[in-house]
């Protein structure tokens, strides 16, 4: 293992010992979902994500990964079971950037603060900090139409960061991006996570991305959606691109892939 990674790990241990992560995270208890047409989207699922945990959900289409996020956010009500989460402390990054095309980057990033009735000066401060954090400084006055796909996604990420959520839901946010942008955003998200220690839930189709970002990978299987297997990823955060070649990483990725093959 490279020296810098060792240093990063020990630093992180110190950080974890000093500041205990805020919030209570997210807990599903026996949550199931049946659609009005009778489709069984989710069999009862139990899943707890504590602050400082980053959980990826992988699985084939229709296994209820995205449904879990919509349930967590309250956009969909569960058929049975209960969900314990503070909905005022929730960040949600959608599959598409979902930006307002008539608003500049800054105005888009300010939206959530605006909806919560914050003063203009405070909104500006939060927005410019978030824009800085995702590396979009210099593009504040651009309209979304003039941004690349990766930059749109960064804007979306910055918007969700402004309210500093304790629970962060990601619904395949980087699925539409090219390999290079995706890799870079993965690195930045990992650093963000190690800094803020939120409870993260990340839906993806990519096994590599899931293992790279997560402290835990949950493999789901379809019809009805349920948890097929769970893997802890005992690598230090923030992750380093070199870790993709770490035997621990490749071993877990291998196992996740084989469970996915069996399940579908």
């Amino acid at each position: 293992m490279p020296e810098s990674a060792v240093a990063a790990r020990s630093l992180l241990d110190v950080a974890a010992a000093v500041e205990s992560p805020a919030g209570k995270g997210l807990a599903f208890e026996g949550v199931s979902l049946v659609y009005p047409d009778g489709t069984h989207a989710l069999a009862p699922v139990d899943l707890t994500v504590a602050p400082g945990e980053f959980v990826s959900l992988v699985g084939p289409s229709g296994c209820g990964k995205s449904s879990l996020l919509r349930l967590a956010s309250g956009l969909v009500e569960p058929t049975t079971g209960s969900i314990d989460v503070d909905r005022d402390q929730l960040g949600y990054v959608f599959q598409d950037p979902t930006l307002m095309p008539w608003r500049t980057v800054t105005a888009n990033v300010e939206l959530l603060a605006e909806l919560h009735g914050l003063k203009k000066a405070e909104r500006r401060r939060l927005a410019s900090a978030a824009i800085d954090l995702v590396g979009l400084t210099g593009f504040e006055s651009h309209l979304p139409a003039r941004l690349s796909g990766g930059m749109k996604m960064r804007t979306s990420l910055a918007r969700s960061l402004t309210m500093n959520p304790e629970v962060f839901l990601f619904d395949e946010p980087f699925g539409a991006l090219d390999e290079i942008s995706r890799g870079r955003l993965n690195d930045e998200l990992s650093r963000l996570f190690s800094q803020r220690q939120f409870a993260g839930v990340f839906v993806t189709h990519s096994v590599q991305e899931a293992v790279y970002l997560s402290t835990r990978v949950v493999v789901m299987s379809p019809r009805p959606g349920r948890i097929a297997a769970t893997f802890d990823v005992p690598l230090p955060v923030p992750r380093d691109p070199e870790m993709r070649f770490d035997p621990v990483f490749t071993d877990i990725a291998h196992h996740v892939s084989s469970v996915l093959r069996e399940g579908s």
Binding site: L133, G135, L136, S148, R154, L192
Partner: peptide, 15 residues
Amino acid sequence: MALATKVLEEQAPPA
């Protein structure tokens, strides 16, 4: 501190 200091390969499409 900025997590991303450069976005060189992700420049906006030229005007």
